[in-house]
Computed example of a mutant assay.
Amino acid sequence: MQRRNMILGGFALLGLGGWALTSNMGGRNTTDLTNLPGAANAQTTSGDFDTSGISDMVLGNPDAEVTVVEYASFTCPHCAAFHSGPFKQLKADFIDTGKIKFVYREVYFDRPGLWASMIARCGGQEKFFGITDLIYKGQSNWARAGEPAAIVNELRKIARLAGMDNETIEACLQDADKAQTLVAWFEENKNRDNITSTPSFLINGTKQSNMAYGDMKALIEAELES
């Protein structure tokens, strides 16, 4: 209960001092999770929460022989770049054609990323990927809106654009138990799959770092042919 009380509700869901995304990426095409302040660091222990109710967000053929899992943060600029280009190619080539099962798993290394996830999940599986697209398209605006209240107000606008009413939005943002459970779920995933940067991918269980789409396509095609 003590850890749950750390969740404050509204736009101050997690009471950590350092919440902003580190802006200096040193030219890399991934965001390193090491030493980044945020929601997943020391606020909860995964064993404290039952994460069985947190669903993976899935596209494509659930029975496909090849599964691609993406680990990404809504505040990661490299993740936004992936979703603005390579993901669309992946979707056209492999997801929409039923060749793969695609799973999206959120990474939380800051509070805004968690808030964005709660907005994306607010619409359920049916609306998740549409809202995700809006969040990534608007990342440069909402993620750098300034104070936490301003960031959440921008995320509310995205939720309204997706067709959600104010009551639904506020209920999702102020669900403290859900926020803590999501953080615990992320920690379980991160530890199990050794996720150290975003975006990261599992292609039939083998971890891959961010890469050019051509390289990803070749790896997926090799799995399809095996």
Score class of each variant (00 low, 15 high):
75 T>H: 04
77 P>E: 15
79 C>V: 03
84 S>G: 14
86 P>L: 01
87 F>D: 13
87 F>T: 07
87 F>K: 04
88 K>Y: 14
91 K>L: 12
92 A>S: 12
92 A>C: 02
93 D>L: 03
95 I>W: 05
96 D>N: 10
96 D>Y: 04
99 K>R: 14
100 I>W: 10
101 K>R: 09
101 K>Q: 04
102 F>E: 06
102 F>G: 02
105 R>S: 14
108 Y>A: 08
108 Y>R: 09
112 P>R: 03
114 L>P: 11
115 W>C: 15
116 A>F: 05
118 M>S: 03
118 M>E: 04
118 M>L: 06
119 I>P: 09
119 I>M: 11
120 A>M: 10
120 A>F: 07
123 G>P: 11
128 F>L: 11
128 F>R: 14
133 D>A: 09
140 S>D: 07
140 S>V: 03
141 N>M: 13
141 N>K: 14
143 A>I: 01
147 E>D: 15
147 E>Y: 14
147 E>I: 13
149 A>E: 14
149 A>L: 10
150 A>K: 08
150 A>L: 07
151 I>H: 05
151 I>R: 12
152 V>Y: 09
155 L>E: 09
156 R>L: 13
158 I>W: 03
159 A>F: 01
162 A>R: 01
166 N>G: 14
167 E>N: 13
168 T>K: 01
170 E>A: 06
172 C>I: 06
173 L>N: 14
